[in-house]
Design a protein around this nucleic acid. Structure first.
Length: 114
RNA sequence: GGAGUCGGCCGGGCGGUCGCUGUCGCGCAAGCGGCAGAGGAAAGUCCGGGCUCCGCAGGGCAGGGUGCCAGGUAACGCCUGGGCGGCGCGAGCCGACGGAAAGUGCAACAGAGAGCAGACCGCCGAACGGUUCCUCCGGGAAUGCGUGGCAAGGGUGAAACGGUGCGGUAAGAGCGCACCGCGAGUCUGGCAACAGACCGGCACGGCAAACCCCACCUGGAGCAAGGCCGAAUAGGGAUCCCAUGACGUGGCCCGCGUCGGAUCCGGGUUGGCCGCACGAGGCGCGUGGUGACACGCGUCCCAGAGGAAUGACCGUCCUCGACAGAACCCGGCUUACAGGCCGGCUCCAAUC
RNA sequence: CGGGGCGUAGCGCAGCCUGGUAGCGCACCACGCUGGGGGUGUGGUGGUCGCGAGUUCGAAUCUCGCCGCCCCGA
């Protein structure tokens, strides 16, 4: 499986950038995640993540979810339009098996193309 | 072999493809290649330090902490050794373990009485009085009724003014004796905590995780500390206090320092670099020490992000993988944790 | 990273400093007043005092260790 190379440019950073995405009020839900997005000011997609302590108390679990999100983003990146996306994890994601979460993520990205 | 106890260690392995962070090398550059890349608890933040700033961090008070003794350490509330007490057949384990004879306090309910106490049921005919009986008229005997004596036994309580036994006595009582306990006595051993022997007499109950006393320790904040570079805005307005005044990050005072200061309104700031990873460092050997540990020599370089790096997928093997993710660093403590390995010691059983 | 606070009846709180009885309001139940409801009066039910150790004769209260929640500062 070939993943696109990501750089610092594909990281969404700063409170202002996050707020801009949330204000756009465009959203798609999957089983374990919420995808907020807005048209990017740049010529490529950027990813931001929100996995709060409410999802799971243990940082190990939160980090695992972030890695899965990031890795799935890399795989899907080339096919995505230039959007700024914030992925928000639902608390149920912490309880679910890893494989199931991964499949949920892979299924979700193509639906954002619309 | 079984049961137990103490100490130390590991905590999925191997191979492949793609990707992430740092660093080194090459390249004008996009990049390419090499190397390294979470833990024993990284956790909780309960202690102790390093480092940085607060002018020096100086004296006193207040506050806080520690609490058998000695040692180790940068330091500690940690560790080691020893003492004392408790548990265990034992190896071992556990202990907030200074002072109650400096003072002030506290003890519900029950109970007669709860701290220089007390007599409910009791016990006592030795003493004084009474009553009854006997009498050889001197007195004698009985009786707990009164004056009284006692606190052994019963009973209450968490606790009842040393315990057990013997003697003693009217009944009793450290009143006497033995043992135990106790003691601010003496001697001996030990750096000390303390222990042993002798001596003394029975007085000095418990609670200091009650106030407190004693000894020792303790300035405050924190890497968003703090520093450098750059950019930008402002050099304002209002109110109040004024130089025996105001301010300074400590709770207060002294001392010291500064000369306007405080509050509110308005305005600006959310770049980059350093701090930031070579350290009270790891490993090996030697020496000293019972040990914690120290010293010497050799050797190694071992995460360093900044919306935050370890992932995805495949193959394979097994005993199918617990708790869990660094954010300035280090030493401890505490808490979580599937399974497994190594060594010391103890008890039991059996065999030679 | 640092600082502070809370946890007691179904809910909101006192009691804790100074240790011995867990109390108040609302709610709930029963009865009375009313034809019924509402309202009101009287009586009553209901608490492992977040969990685990320790100190004490005795702990909601004192001490230590955990757990959960909330707030504040940079």
């Amino acid at each position: 499986m070939r993943a696109a190379k990501t750089t610092r440019a594909s990281v969404l950073s700063g409170k202002a950038a996050f707020d801009r995405v949330f204000v756009a009020r465009l959203k798609r839900n999957s089983r374990y995640f919420r995808f907020h997005f807005a048209a990017s000011e740049l010529d490529h997609a950027r990813l931001g993540m929100a996995v709060s302590r409410r999802v799971d108390k243990r940082s190990v679990v939160r980090n695992r979810l972030r890695r899965q999100i990031r890795q799935s983003f890399r795989l899907a990146m080339a096919t995505l339009p230039n959007l700024d996306i914030v992925v928000n994890a639902k608390p149920e994601a912490a309880q679910a098996p890893r494989g199931e979460v991964w499949r949920d993520l892979l299924d979700a990205w193509p639906r954002l193309r619309a």
